[in-house]
Write a protein that binds this DNA or RNA. Structure first.
Length: 564
RNA sequence: CGGGAUGUAGCGCAGUUUGGUAGCGCACUUCGUUCGGGACGAAGGGGCCGGAGGUUCGAAUCCUCUCAUCCCGACCA
């Protein structure tokens, strides 16, 4: 088998899974975020795929295979042709017709279903596929973990009702839990924002790893867990001793722009300063107001406003509306809508920018000095703060790799694409949809992140490319060759996927490569042990080895594997 | 898309400051000796120094442009 291992990691790799996949001869890079999968790597992907298939089939999923190249019209119909942005790789054919390389397949599956499924009697329906997707990521990185082209399982369900969708959603939760458990992963299911896919109910499956790109918050006491995009803050308790309202007063704060500078200059704690961040949105400029020691969570803010998009406003746009440079913006007499965190309107005297250069107000009171358009949780939560769900828990914040994401979409696609069914009363309704993704390559990479040591990969048995590797000490010695070949053949006949290292390299090379590619069981066959009828069996994970009778032990190997 | 860095043999790198026609380690080929944890010796093969243009008698080296890749940030199922 072609397994081009490397002693040194390529210079352009950063995370451990990327280094090890390249070193183990699983993948090679072709362009930024685009990888070829070599034989060993493919065997792992196929293992993950097979587990996914089994779990999808178990809950009634039917496998399909949809085109990777999709016509623009379909995307225009759903509205995403203009919404999706540069991440969508757009291409033209020879007739100058527009297409895209599919980043996901809601449009295509919905097109199939709207044409073929007409009656409530045909619902619910659940389809899935395992396909290569392309998303033209701004910055691909971390090897196969954040590639532009990647293998993904995507599933789509169609229902007559929200309740029905929720049933399938629950099935998916079970299936996904099985998938990631079977892949040997330590994962968490967390509440998530729906992002550009849309919908209103969503969970991510996240593998805890320091190299992960997602931050997640979870309770150290109950089962609450959420992506930091969404992690809820517990409603603030009103202060025990409300402060006597002080008059609004302007104070000079020359060149004090940051919360920290103002806090030090005026001798007030950051908690008593109002942080005013101006955002540009499709609904115009808005201000997000949080306590000085907090951070605005733009996604929560966007959801509170109910707008399509939002980003921090340019200095120029701020100046036009407020006559104040950044750092001196405040809510008092601010001519734009104010959205505030619940910590803001508590009865306290606050400090805020005076909307003019080098000045702040003290004694600011929400309600009296400015009015709030809408109050809601719009801040980032922090490590150690109280859990929003239970009374005892505290937030923990960790990084993780998103390996699965499930959504209830509602009618976001079925309505514009007119995927309708006739109900029992003969009335037309839009189907309720759900969609469910698993990053296949990312799951394999995540498994490496969680299962490796200084020598290389330590594959969990279910996704190991092979279960055993036969290492002849010297394949040129007839007795060793015969015993090795016999072991190899016997193991395959016993259903053990086995690799035979028949290279003429020195033993050390073979051992090191075997450790690197992480096959769970190493079977070492050498002339000395063979003379006394023994072979050596070593487990990769524990590095423990023992001598066993040859060939009798071969029959016991399937049993030994079960114990791993 | 902003900031930073790097492109020299299959891989990892030196050489660039101070211009003189390319080197080291690993890998590869051949021979010999080795052979239970990345062997040793000898002899070899392989690079128009990312690309284009310019300066110069002469450019891997200096200048301009360009492309690629990586890192940080912004963004993101």
């Amino acid at each position: 088998m072609f397994i081009p291992t490397l002693k040194e990691s390529p210079a352009d790799s950063e995370v451990i899974s990327h280094k090890l996949m390249v070193r183990a001869g699983m993948i090679r890079q072709l362009a930024a975020g685009i990888y070829s999968t070599l034989p060993l790597g493919l065997r792992v992907l196929r293992k993950v795929e097979q587990i996914v298939r089994e779990e999808m089939n178990r809950i009634g999923g039917q496998e399909v295979f949809m085109p990777s190249v999709q016509p623009a019209e379909l995307w225009m119909e759903s509205g995403r042709w203009s919404l999706y942005g540069k991440e969508l790789l757009r291409i033209r054919d020879r007739h100058d017709r527009e297409f895209c390389y599919g980043p996901t397949h809601e449009e295509v599956i919905t097109d199939i279903v709207r044409k073929e499924i007409k009656s409530y009697r045909q619902l619910p329906a659940l389809f899935y596929q395992i396909q290569t997707k392309f998303r033209d990521e701004v910055r691909p990185r971390f090897g196969i973990m954040r590639g532009r082209e990647f293998m993904m399982k995507d599933a789509y369900s169609f229902h007559v009702s929200e309740d029905s969708a929720r049933e399938t959603y629950q099935d998916m939760i079970d299936a996904y839990s099985n998938i990631f458990r079977r892949c040997g992963l330590d994962f968490k299911m967390v509440e998530a924002d729906t992002g550009t896919i849309g919908g209103h109910h969503s969970h991510e499956f996240v593998v805890l790893a320091d190299s992960g790109e997602d931050a997640i918050g979870f309770c150290d006491s109950c089962d609450y867990a959420s992506n930091m995009e969404k992690a809820a803050a517990r409603a603030p308790a009103p202060p025990a001793n409300p402060e006597e309202p002080a008059p609004l007063k302007e104070v000079s704060t020359p060149n004090k722009k940051t919360v920290e500078e103002v806090s030090r200059f005026l001798g007030v704690s950051p908690q008593k300063i109002l942080k005013t961040i101006v955002f540009e949105t499709d609904a115009g400029l808005v201000a997000g107001l949080v306590r000085g020691d907090r951070q605005v969570n733009p996604i929560k803010l966007k959801n509170l406003i109910g707008c399509e998009w939002l980003h921090p406003a340019e200095e120029k746009a701020i100046a036009e509306k407020t006559q104040a440079p950044r750092g001196f913006v405040g809510p008092v007499k601010l001519p734009i809508k104010i959205y505030a965190d619940p910590e803001v309107p508590l009865p306290r005297n606050m400090v805020a920018g005076a909307n003019k250069m080098d000045a702040h107000y003290t004694g600011v009171q929400a309600g009296r000095d400015f009015s709030i358009e809408k109050t809601g949780d719009i801040r980032m939560v922090e490590e150690g703060e109280p859990c929003p769900k239970c009374d005892r828990g505290r937030y923990k914040i960790r990084r993780g790799i998103e390996v699965g994401h499930i959504f209830i979409l509602g009618t976001k696609y079925s309505a514009p694409l007119k995927a309708q069914y006739l109900d029992a009363q003969g009335k037309e309704n839009a189907m309720v949809m759900g969609c469910y993704g698993v990053g296949v390559g990312r799951t394999a990479a995540a498994a490496i992140e969680q299962n490796h040591d200084e020598k290389g990969i330590v594959w969990p048995l279910p996704i190991a490319p092979f279960q055993a590797v036969v290492i002849p000490v010297n394949y040129a010695v007839d007795a060793v060759k015969d015993a090795s070949d016999k072991t190899y053949d016997t193991l395959w006949s016993l259903g053990v996927e086995t690799l035979l290292d028949d290279r003429s390299d020195r033993l050390g090379v073979k051992f090191n490569d075997a450790d690197l590619i992480g096959i769970p069981l190493q079977i070492v066959i050498g002339p000395k042990n063979l003379e006394s009828g023994k072979i050596e069996i070593k487990t990769r994970k524990t590095n423990q080895s023992g001598l066993h009778d040859f060939p009798d032990v071969l029959q016991k190997i399937p049993e030994m594997l079960k114990g791993l």
